[in-house]
Design a protein around this nucleic acid. Structure first.
Lengths: 175, 175
DNA sequence: GGACCTATTTATAATTG
DNA sequence: TCAATTATAAATAGGTC
């Protein structure tokens, strides 16, 4: 079976996989901590909304440290509302869904890599369709995408600061 | 190699292992999300104190949900306006992590070009298993992939244009 | 649910270029 | 350093009890 990255439809299988993989992720997180001295905070809510967590040295401190970094900064910028709006779109669930979808598709594409290794015949012509779209995925563009979104976020945050919002303990507050 | 669970003493090896395993944990977390519909928040600080995070659907909401369980009460502010809510959800590193992850995968995908050259000839009869998934991907998934990326890039480009940048040959220029 | 199997796939430490 | 490969250990889907 291909084990493609996709939601498991069968409810029972999904639950079993959740338990197994949840343990797997926690184990990996722990190994990362022990082997490299990293600081980790991990929270998981099951589909049934039960929560599980792991943290080292201490999950609450890790969360606070992380949230503390979220405090906005930076100067202002004109016409910021456009960026706010753009950011709203960029950060919407729609984008998450699309990124998930992209990841899904890329996983699928990557699966081809191992299969291709098994083939020792020339199929140049059959593969033209594939080569073309891949080549158009300019890596530089992906990098720019990341940088631009990062920039947008800074602007959005300073916008918030200018209007008297502050970010504390994972929440924005108006003063 | 025994891969004993212990701190890696050699500084260089530790750094290399940190990067590899950090990616591994994020990948596992993402798989858990996609396959089982779990909600996950993951924060990692490197030994050098750089932070990385992953969350789905949104790391800050997940943190708030978790912290809320730990510390009940504290009714959230009443008339919280939509922008405040939006800002609360904003999280640059979450997107960065996702995009970095996508970029890593894109790099792999781009390598398919050279891999394809390893292939020699005629896959017609012996590779039915291979042809089928490829054709599927050609008309649906591959085109979606390309389309999604271009769509995302379009947003980025329009942002740049408004700010007086132009995008040519994979590079941004001012004025 | 959980504790075992076990055929496969995946992750990754070490190595090579 | 850095990417790429490879040999091996680990994870895990799908069973069974």
């Amino acid at each position: 079976m291909s084990t493609r990255l996709a939601k498991i439809e069968n409810q029972n299988n999904r639950q079993v996989t959740f338990s197994k993989r949840r343990n797997g992720v926690f184990k990996k997180a722990n190994e990362l901590v022990v082997m490299t001295g990293a600081e980790v905070g991990l929270i998981v809510f099951s589909p049934a909304n039960k929560s599980y967590s792991f943290g080292h040295p201490n999950i609450n401190e890790t969360i606070n440290k992380y949230v503390g970094e979220e405090k906005p900064s930076s100067p202002s910028s004109p016409g910021i509302d456009k960026y706010v709006e753009m950011f709203r779109k960029a950060n919407s669930r729609e984008l998450n869904t699309r990124l998930n979808y992209l990841q899904d598709q890329l996983e699928f594409a990557l699966n081809l890599k191992s299969k291709l290794k098994e083939i020792n015949k020339n199929v140049e012509s059959q593969q033209e369709w594939f080569r073309d779209p891949i080549e158009k995925m300019n890596y530089t563009e992906a990098s720019m995408l990341k940088e631009r979104l990062e920039d947008l976020l800074l602007k959005v945050k300073s916008y918030g600061t200018e209007r008297g919002y502050s970010y504390e303990n994972g929440r924005w507050k108006h003063e």
